[in-house]
Amino acid sequence: MGFKLLSKLLVYLTASIMAIASPLAFSVDSSGEYPTVSEIPVGEVRLYQIADGVWSHIATQSFDGAVYPSNGLIVRDGDELLLIDTAWGAKNTAALLAEIEKQIGLPVTRAVSTHFHDDRVGGVDVLRAAGVATYASPSTRRLAEVEGNEIPTHSLEGLSSSGDAVRFGPVELFYPGAAHSTDNLIVYVPSASVLYGGCAIYELSRTSAGNVADADLAEWPTSIERIQQHYPEAQFVIPGHGLPGGLDLLKHTTNVVKAHTNRSVVE
């Protein structure tokens, strides 16, 4: 069995187990497998329904001669939608809004960016022009300005110390501490036991640490421990890039980060 097929099978099995364990909360999309990078042309966006009122959005972007996937989250909030992270750029984010209108038909009224990198804030200006209120932590807003990236308009308070959590509509926002970046936030959907790890969490097929220019490698494993301790009931975990899975993604990420750190020390 090929690795790609095995990865998709694991996603399907995880979703099936969740649907059985929580039949009222989960209505997993039966329309197909989780979209992969090879299936999404740059400039297009796919939506994948995880649970009743919960979707991931998947886009792709060219970077350094390669094409990478990027995940975000959409959560229903009454007759409105909360968006977590842009679709990595203005063109993708405009396509995301169009796809949401086509498939869901509810307005996106608020959006949260989970850290300051372009795959999370690139497209904020498109959201703002569409009347979406954009939010991020003060740290993310400051770092985005320093980096020359787009800056969300509103500040999220109460997320300055490791372990801080605040309720934001249908989700809980959690600051686990520094990891992929010093400002990275985690998003949890309690009604569906869905954990969105953003770039602080890796997919299972990833074996290298990737972009760690703004990471705190020493603190990252401790931050992941905080996530595990705060959300032990999480059933569906979405990484910032690639295929979702279960809580095993947290341990896998820790292993990859520690291996990278150990290699760096040896070198």
Rank of each mutant, 00 (worst) to 15 (best):
P23C: 13
G242H: 05
E101W: 08
A213T: 10
L82S: 03
V132M: 04
M1S: 03
L81N: 03
P244Y: 11
G242M: 04
T253H: 02
K251G: 13
V45N: 02
V11G: 06
I227R: 02
E267L: 09
S161F: 12
F236R: 10
V256N: 02
E157K: 10
L159Q: 00
T114L: 00
F63L: 12
L173A: 03
S30P: 08
V121E: 01
L173H: 06
A21D: 15
V75P: 02
A111P: 04
Y68S: 09
K251E: 11
V132E: 03
G105M: 09
G177M: 03
P176I: 03
Y175V: 03
A213E: 14
L173Q: 02
A66F: 15
P23S: 10
S191A: 11
I20L: 11
L217M: 12
A111H: 06
I104L: 08
D52L: 10
A165S: 14
V54D: 04
E267R: 11
S137W: 04
P69H: 15
T114M: 05
D29I: 08
C199M: 00
D248A: 11
G245P: 02
R120D: 02
P69S: 15
T14R: 05
A234M: 07
L10C: 11
A144I: 08
R226W: 06
F3A: 06
I84A: 03
L10Y: 15
Y135F: 11
G177A: 03
G123I: 03
L5Q: 12
D64T: 08
R167W: 11
V108N: 02
F168A: 02
E39C: 06
M18L: 12
G78F: 07
I224K: 03
E219C: 04
E225N: 13
I104A: 00
N255G: 14
E267C: 02
V146Q: 13
L81H: 02
Y12A: 12
R46L: 11
L73N: 00
L6D: 12
N92E: 04
A178T: 07
S155P: 12
I50S: 02
R142G: 12
S16V: 14
I186D: 00
F26G: 15
E101C: 04
S181Q: 02
Y135S: 01
R167V: 11
R110M: 10
M18N: 15
A192G: 12
A98H: 12
A15D: 06
A15K: 06
A87R: 00
P69I: 15
P41S: 12
H230Q: 11
I20K: 15
A87Y: 02
D77W: 08
A259W: 09
